[in-house]
């Protein structure tokens, strides 16, 4: 795992943010994790040249100011950032949300388990996959 590969977490719930952080720590993933609280902040982060370019974005759907779907639709039109893989991390099982997300080219759709141990397993599977998957710079 390259130390440089960073993760951007777009999540408004502080406990969910802690869950991700804790899970990454628990499975010994040391990649830097950046955290923003909504779509607007995420776009700001991605367009800021000073900030590192993440290799993967973990995106919640329901957020204040700018939700996940709106963020996706803007991001996928932006030539500079549209190839960064996005994985949805949400509580919504609604078919409509899944369809919209995949239509906007997400790389995966994960439902947050209530149980932390299961949550950890989800993060572990995700990280295993993305450490093996090549990304486009």
């Amino acid at each position: 795992m390259t130390v440089l590969k960073s993760i951007l977490l777009v999540e408004d719930d502080i406990v969910d943010m802690m869950s991700v952080k804790r899970a990454l720590k628990d499975i010994n993933v040391t990649n830097p994790l950046y955290h923003v609280e909504n779509g607007e902040e995420a776009l700001e982060f991605l367009r800021d040249k000073e900030k590192p370019r993440p290799t993967i974005i973990l995106l919640d759907l329901n957020m204040p100011k700018m939700g996940g779907i709106e963020f996706l639709s803007i991001m996928k039109k932006d030539e500079a950032i549209k190839r960064i893989p996005v994985v949805i991390l949400t509580t919504s099982r609604a078919e409509y949300d899944k369809i919209q997300s995949y239509n906007l080219g997400v790389a995966g759709y994960m439902i947050k388990p209530v149980d932390y141990h299961q949550f950890m397993e989800v993060i572990r599977a995700m990280c295993m996959y993305w450490t093996l998957s090549e990304v486009s710079e």
């Binding site: 719930d13 802690m18 869950s19 329901n62 509580t91 209530v114 949550f119």
Partner: peptide, 21 residues
């Protein structure tokens, strides 16, 4: 129904996680 699925489940999940931690 959507609110229930998200807004009620989120704190629930938080309680679960926090108690385990």
């Amino acid at each position: 129904a959507y609110i229930v699925s998200h807004d009620l489940k989120a704190p629930l999940r938080a309680i679960g996680s926090l108690s385990q931690w």
